[in-house]
Nucleic acid binder design. Structure first.
Lengths: 163, 163
DNA sequence: CATACTCGTTAGCATTGCTAAGTATAGTTT
DNA sequence: AAACTATACTTAGCAATGCTAACGAGTATG
C-alpha cells in the first residue's frame, strides 16, 4: 500500500499538487463513512449486552477510570450535563452505577460503577468491541501495526477538531 | 486496564480463539473510541449545514447513487424501513428530496434528490467531512499515507463484520 | 378468486441530544 | 453577615433516531 509516486495514482486519490484538498477530502470521506458503518455494525452485535452505546461507554469510563463527577463524565463523553444526568440515571436504575455526594463540595455527585456494573463490563466485556477485536485478531501483524499507528494519528486529529 | 503481560506480543495464533488477544482488544478499544469521538465532534461542526447525520448520509447516497426505493435506501443505510420513511419525509419536507411512485410496481416509492438537495450536498458538500478534511490536509504526507492504508484495512474489517 | 407475500406507512415506545430555566451549594464582594 | 456571582446538577420540553407491531395497498401465486 506504500506507493511512492503521487503523480501516478488513481484519480480517486487525487493529484498531490494541483489540488491538495482533493486528497484530504477523499480520505476524510472514506474515513467518515468507515466510522459511521463501523459503529452501526457494532451496535448490532451488541444487542445481547442490553446496554446502549452511550451507557456502555459511560460505564466503561467509570470502570476503568474510577468514580467521576457527572460533569467530568459528561466532559469525557463529550455530551452536555443533562444528557449525562439521564445516562447515569438509566445506569443507576439498572443497578450498574451508584452515586454519592461529595462530602467537601456537596454540589458534586460522584458516579461509581457497582460490582454488578463492573462485572457486566468485564465479563461479557463489551460485545461490540469484542466483535471488532475478533476481526482485528485475524489481521496479520503488519496490518495491525499499521492500524495502530493510524489510530494514534486519528486520536490526535480528533483532539484537534476542538479548535 | 493493562496488566503487565510480558510474553505473547504476537499471540494471534497461540491462544484459544474464544478470547481475542490483548493486543487486538486494546486496538479495538481505541479504534472504537476514536470512531465514537470522531463522529461526535464532526456532528457538532455540522450545525451550519442544517442537516443531521442520517439525513445528510441518505441524501448523499441519493445524490451519488441515483434514485432509490425506500427499501433499498434503508438497506444501504442499514436502518429499518420506518426509520428511512421518516428520514426521507424530513428531507422531502425540506425540499431536498422528491418521491415518485414506480409505474410498474406501485408499491414502490423512489426517492430522488432534488436540484436543491444536490446543490446543498455538492456546494457546501458536507461540512463534517470538510472539517475533517481540513485537519487531514495539515498532516504530513507520511501520516496521510498511513491513514489511507489503514482506512482500506478498516473498510475490509467493517465489511467482514456482517458475517 | 383466495391466499400469501412485499413495500411502505402509521402508531407507540425508549433513548439520545440539545437549550432554557430552576435548585442547591460554594465562593466573593461589600 | 448579607448580597452577589458562579458552579453542579436536575427538570422540562423539544426534535431526531432507532426499534417492533400492526395495517393498508399492491403484487404474485395457488
Amino acid at each position: 500500500m506504500a506507493e511512492a509516486r503521487p503523480a501516478a495514482r488513481h484519480a480517486t486519490h487525487g493529484v498531490a499538487n494541483s489540488e491538495p484538498d482533493r486528497d484530504a477530502r477523499a480520505l476524510a470521506d472514506r474515513l467518515h463513512s468507515a466510522a459511521v458503518h463501523l459503529l452501526r455494525r457494532l451496535r448490532r452485535q451488541d444487542s445481547t449486552s442490553g446496554l446502549s452505546g452511550p451507557r456502555l461507554s459511560a460505564l466503561s469510563v467509570l470502570v476503568f477510570g474510577g468514580p467521576l463527577t457527572l460533569g467530568d463524565l459528561a466532559a469525557a463523553e463529550q455530551v452536555r450535563a443533562p444528557t449525562m444526568t439521564r445516562i447515569v440515571q438509566g445506569l443507576e436504575r439498572l443497578g450498574y452505577v451508584s452515586r454519592e455526594r461529595d462530602t467537601r463540595d456537596r454540589r458534586l455527585f460522584r458516579a461509581r460503577a457497582t460490582a454488578r456494573g463492573r462485572a457486566l463490563l468485564l465479563e461479557g466485556r463489551n460485545r461490540r468491541v469484542d466483535a471488532l477485536a475478533r476481526r482485528l485478531a485475524s489481521l496479520d501483524a503488519a496490518q495491525r501495526q499499521l492500524l495502530g499507528g493510524s489510530v494514534a494519528i486519528l486520536e490526535e486529529v480528533v483532539r484537534s477538531l476542538d479548535d
